[in-house]
């Protein structure tokens, strides 16, 4: 008997269920319901899709309520409601609390202009904290990584030198492909064509990885069906 069948039993309408076995069956049925989309769009698939979206949203809402609204707002304003009754109230959290409530005015057309204030605050905050760090992280350090030694020597092996050259040529040629102020003719035309090839290789690598990701998800479901669900459904079929 699989381990999953050893849990506490659940009685519903006079029928006895093992919650873990019931969970495995639910997972299996929903997996097949989602796979039914491969045959064509259908109501069973739609139902499973809505269940997934609903549960994800519901779970997320509960977690955010517990971890953000209660912990960061309610318990800070009224510590006596929490386990830390000896902590003094922090009234500064009223400001983000009000900004958060103003976001809800999006649902009231007459007052939805008020939601611009928290949005402006958020955009300003993230732009202010982000820009000084994004420039070095995304631009300067990446530019530095393209400026590696191109000549083999004591510290630079042949392979490293060739790799550095490929990166440098790739960056320059790809950038010239996106230079639109002059017609792509002559040297610029050759460079932009090489740039297209580099882009193609990058897209190919991206597509290959995407295929791998999707197959991995299918493998995960197949593993579940064969190793978790099948032994419950067919006890002698343990793989």
């Amino acid at each position: 008997m699989p381990e999953a069948q050893q849990g506490t039993e659940l009685v519903f309408l006079g029928l006895t269920f093992n919650p873990e076995v019931l969970g495995l069956w639910l997972q299996a049925v929903l997996t097949f319901a989602i796979f039914s989309f491969l045959w064509g769009d259908n109501r069973v698939y739609k139902f499973a899709e809505h269940v997934f979206v609903g549960i994800s949203a519901g779970y997320g809402a509960v977690i955010v309520w517990q971890q953000a609204v209660l912990l960061l707002l309610v318990f800070k304003l009224w510590p006596q409601l929490s386990a830390k009754a000896d902590v003094t109230a922090d009234h500064w959290v009223i400001i983000p609390g009000i900004l958060g409530l103003l976001m809800l005015t999006r649902f009231m057309p007459k007052y939805d202009w008020l939601s611009r204030y928290p949005i402006a605050f958020t955009v300003g905050l993230y732009a202010g904290t982000g820009i000084p760090r994004i420039v070095p992280a995304y631009l300067l350090r990446q530019m530095g990584a393209t400026m590696k030694p191109l000549v083999p020597g004591a510290d630079v092996g042949w392979w490293v030198a060739v790799s550095s050259l490929v990166v440098l040529v790739g960056v320059i040629c790809t950038l010239t492909y996106f230079y639109f102020s002059r017609p792509h003719e002559g040297a610029l035309g050759v460079s932009s064509k090489i740039g297209i090839w580099f882009l193609m290789v990058a897209f190919g690598a991206g597509f290959g990885n995407t295929v791998m990701a999707r197959i991995s998800l299918l493998i995960g479901r197949v593993e579940f069906l064969l190793y978790d669900w099948l032994p419950v459904w067919w006890p002698g079929a343990g793989l």
């Binding site: 992280a137 690598a205 991206g206 990885n209 791998m212």
Partner: peptide
């Protein structure tokens, strides 16, 4: 990371970040 994201992150590994 998921394989879909990996190609976007390799440059940060090659740059030492």
């Amino acid at each position: 990371v998921t394989a879909v994201m990996a190609t976007d992150l390799y440059p940060f590994w090659k740059s030492g970040q």
